[in-house]
Each structure stands twice: as C-alpha cells, then as structure tokens.
Design a protein around this nucleic acid. Structure first.
Lengths: 213, 213
DNA sequence: ACAAAAGTGTTAACTTTACACCCATGT
DNA sequence: ACATGGGTGTAAAGTTAACACTTTTGT
C-alpha cells in the first residue's frame, strides 16, 4: 500500500487568502494543479516525509504542519492505490519570500475563491483543509503562525472576514484582541497606504490558546 | 506499506465513561490490551475496513466513526511498518447490549481513568482520541449519538463533568439545554434510583450542531 | 481642504454565573 | 418521617453588539 502526505499551505498576500499549488507536468492530470505531495518511505514518518519534500522541492522550510484528514477512496489515484494523509499549514508570506529560490515555474499561490482546475481528489482535500482552517483560526495560537510580527489590526480583521465569511465591527474586533491580552504595539506604523497609517502589532511572547470567535 | 484502522469506541455505563479494548492473545504484547484494529486491504477504504471488522469481530454494527489522527512513527509496530489511522466513535450502551453475541472473552469495556496495560502505541492513540472527544462533546450532534433517546439530564451532566474534568451547576446546565432547543421530554421518568425520579428526555428530530461548552 | 482609512468610547441587550429552597420517590 | 437525588427562579456580573465621530496620513 502506498501512503502519501499532502500539504495545504495557506498564506495571506495583500489581504487575500491563498493556497500553494503545483502544476502537474505528466499524465495523468497533466496541466492540472495539485497539492504538494510526497510518498512516504519505509523509514520516514509522514511528518518527516512532508518536511523534507517541502524544503527540497517547494523551498519552504521550518513550516509547522498539523494533521488534517486521511483519504482512502480506492480509486482516488487512477494509477495505483494511494492513501493520502493531508496536513494544514499557515505561513507568513514575508518569511517565504526571503527563502524562495530564484525561479520555480510550476509553483503558484492561488486565491481560495478562484482556483484553477485541480487534479485527483485534491479539491476535496482542499475543501476539507479550509474547513479545518475555519476551526483553527478561531484559536489565537494559529494566528501567531500567520502573523509572527508586524501586523495591523485591519489586516488581521480582513483575514477573519474572508475565512469566516462575514463582516466584523472594527471597534469590537479591536476590543476583543486587547481584552484577550494577546498583542502589543511594536511602536511602528504601516506606511504606503491611503489614509491614516495603522499601528503595527505583534503577538505577545507567551499567549494562551484562547477561543476568539 | 501496511495501513491499519484503529477504533476508539466510547460509551457510558452507569454514568462512567468507558472505552472498548481487546486482549492480545499472541506475541508481541501478549496479554496486553489494545484497541480494535484492522489492516486495510487493497480494495477497501479505511472506513469500510473498520466497519466490517467491528461488525464481524466486535459485534458492533451501525456505529458512526469519525477520523481522529494518523500515527506514522517508524517503530510503532515492532514487527513491521504500519501506519495507523485512528477513528473515534461514541455509542449508546443499551443499543450495544441488544446486539452483542453470547460470549466474547477477549473484549472488555474499561473506565478511562483505570485502564489496564496497553500494547503498542495505543495509549497514545487513546489519549489523542480522548482529546478529540473533549472537543467533540462540546457540539450537540455528538451527544445525540451517545444518547439517542431516553436520557436524563443528570446522566448527561455527569458525562460532561467526567470529560471536561470539572463540576457543573445543575440549574445552569439544564437552562443551557432548554434554551438551546435541543431536547424534549418523553413523558416518562427514570425509576430504580434513590430519590426523586428524573424526567426522561430525547433529542429533537432536527437539531443544529451548536457549540454547547 | 479633501478623501481615505484608522482609532476610540458608551450604552443596551444578552449571556453566564452564583446561589437556596421545594419536590417526588424509596425505606 | 427521613434520606436521597431531582427540579426550579432570580439577581448580579460579565460579555457581546450596535453605533458615530475624531485623527492621521497622502494628494
């Protein structure tokens, strides 16, 4: 039996939620986009397999992965039987850019509401990952992964509005974060936008994993 | 690569939370207790494999299983490499009793706070299942599985207290369930105990999956 | 000075908690 | 009649939701 690890890696670029996909170069599903994935070797755990693959082939290191779901439909891969274990990761886009190698032509970030044609059962995997993500971002620790430092409250609010699917009140949103004792001002301001510049924040060193929404 | 499905089946007997284990009859881990588990065949999904096994070997049919976690440590099984996918199920004990066959000597229900010696990495699997259970019973739909009908509020409260690990106020507990519009009286009362008999309830036909705690 | 986006405070509605007495049964 | 456990109401505290004006920047 073959077992593969699949990664649904999410990030935020310019206030838009995006997922990392790679284009398949060979049949089956040639030209379709799929999730990064790697077959598990006999002497590796799923997590080791995934981390190595993501580092070597996707130029993404030091990501944190969380198990998400396992897919075992007999025909999910037409070539051979493969059981897929999916992982969820959320990263800070600014960190990625620093690490990324010059050119990786078959790797791209897509907005989650305008995905290209997806190969295998990966649309199902993505849908399940987004559901897990909805649950996950309700907890404060998850946010610290996406926004390790230097975020503005309007930024983080926009992310919530996209993932939760509805608008939130700016004043109440701010109050929630302040009362939860999660963030502190860095002292700087976000420049380069229209209007009054937003204050920059970071998450405090030691935060509890509180339920926020 | 071998892949197995593992089942953590929970129930309540006389107000006590219990988990189903089987005793291993052969080496390795002879005499230890382990979770029911079945190797996945090439032409079966994990869910099919588990359902068939539980029905044939454990005399438990029509259970609902929910995926829980995947275990891939290289040495988790000393004989050969096996990746384990764990499932969580919660059942009404009265339903089981009706279905169970005369004698199954190596199958037993254990209270979760006094488990026997556990083989393989199954203690880790159980711990992870209990964590998932804690999250799960906060949602109303999960409760409907354990208590399909004819439960009393004190019963369900005792379960919450065990799983959540702290005591709850009887009056506020009741109010929460009534306001959530989840339950209705059957009209009968639970007899055979000391004190005033408790009213019996059932969950309403169509309930939303609300967060209760 | 105007447009754009950020920051802030107060009040009302709702939810949660804390708490004490009465009720129905078995012995 | 008494012991046991179940059922109920109310008030205070805390939380959430609704809402409008002022501030800081770029043009």
């Amino acid at each position: 039996m073959n077992v593969e690890a699949l990664a649904s890696v999410f990030t935020i670029v310019d206030g838009k939620f995006k997922i990392l996909l790679t284009r398949k170069k060979t049949e089956p599903y040639k030209g379709y986009w799929i999730l990064p994935n790697a077959m598990v070797a006999k002497d590796k755990t799923l997590e080791e397999t995934l981390e190595e693959f993501m580092q070597e082939k996707m130029q993404l290191s030091n990501l944190e992965y969380e198990q998400c779901a396992t897919f075992s439909a007999v025909d999910r891969n037409p070539s051979k039987r493969v059981i897929g274990v999916s992982f969820l990761s959320i990263v800070d886009f600014r960190t990625i850019e620093k690490q990324s190698s010059p050119v990786e032509d078959a790797i791209e970030w897509f907005e989650i509401d305008s995905l290209p044609k997806i190969g295998y059962d990966h649309m199902e995997v993505i849908t399940s990952a987004i559901e897990s993500l909805k649950l996950k971002i309700r907890h404060s620790l998850a946010l610290k992964q996406i926004f390790p430092s230097d975020f503005t409250l309007p930024e983080i609010q926009k992310m919530y509005e996209q993932v939760l699917g509805h608008e939130l009140d700016r004043r109440n949103f701010r109050k929630k974060f302040v009362k939860a004792d999660l963030i502190e001002e860095t002292g700087d301001k976000a420049l380069g936008m229209n209007g009054r510049p937003a204050k920059l924040y970071r998450f405090k060193e030691e935060i509890e994993n509180k339920l926020l929404f």
